[in-house]
């Protein structure tokens, strides 16, 4: 058994004592995952950083309002997903690229960003990211969560709000689709 306090214990501290240190421990645990989740969907590192930072602040406000929370990671991913949608809306408004936002089939991850350019220095990474970004958003998400963040099926089910079996099927189909894209 690990000596680090569980999510539940930390959540309890945050909920009952509004303990910032307990919240910081939750931040340490999830910041990498949330950052990556966001990063694959936005165009630059700076934007990913802004959104990831916003996610944790919003989650804290959620606690402050005394709302019930079943799973902290579930809450973070839900906030992250909404923040990304907001980000797309803003971008669509300012850059007049509504077509991109409307095309749910493939919201491009990291296009035009430094990360994408540098990844192309590695042929393998470039090819796979290119294929990944052509997948529809829910396929991108399950692949990111399953293979990059290495979450369990149950965790993904909780985050995406789908049943475990559906998640398995989606991962299977997403991988199949990815393989087709890789040709």
């Amino acid at each position: 058994m690990s000596k680090t306090p569980s999510d539940q214990e930390l959540l309890y501290q945050v909920k009952t004592a509004a303990d910032p240190e307990a919240y910081a421990a939750l931040y340490d645990k999830y910041i990498q995952q949330i950052y990556r989740f966001v990063f694959f969907k936005v165009s630059s590192r700076e934007e990913a950083e802004d959104i990831a930072s916003e996610v944790f602040l919003k989650a804290w406000q959620y606690f402050q309002e005394g709302k019930a929370i079943k799973s902290f990671s579930g809450l973070l991913y839900r906030i992250a997903r909404n923040s990304i949608i907001d980000w797309y809306r803003k971008r669509a408004g300012s850059q007049k690229i509504e077509a991109l936002a409307a095309r749910r089939e493939a919201i491009e991850p990291g296009d035009g960003g430094r990360w994408y350019a540098e990844l192309h220095t590695s042929l393998d990474a470039g090819v796979i990211v290119n294929a990944l970004k052509q997948l529809k958003q829910e396929y991108q998400e399950v692949i990111t969560l399953r293979y990059i963040d290495e979450l369990s099926i149950e965790e993904i089910a909780e985050i995406t709000g789908k049943r475990g079996l559906t998640v398995r099927v989606m991962i299977h189909r997403a991988l199949k689709r990815l393989r087709q894209k890789l040709g």
Partner: peptide, 12 residues
């Protein structure tokens, strides 16, 4: 290949 993406630039 996907797992390797975890490293490097994909991390904060």
């Amino acid at each position: 290949q996907l797992k390797r993406l975890r490293q490097g630039e994909a991390s904060p």
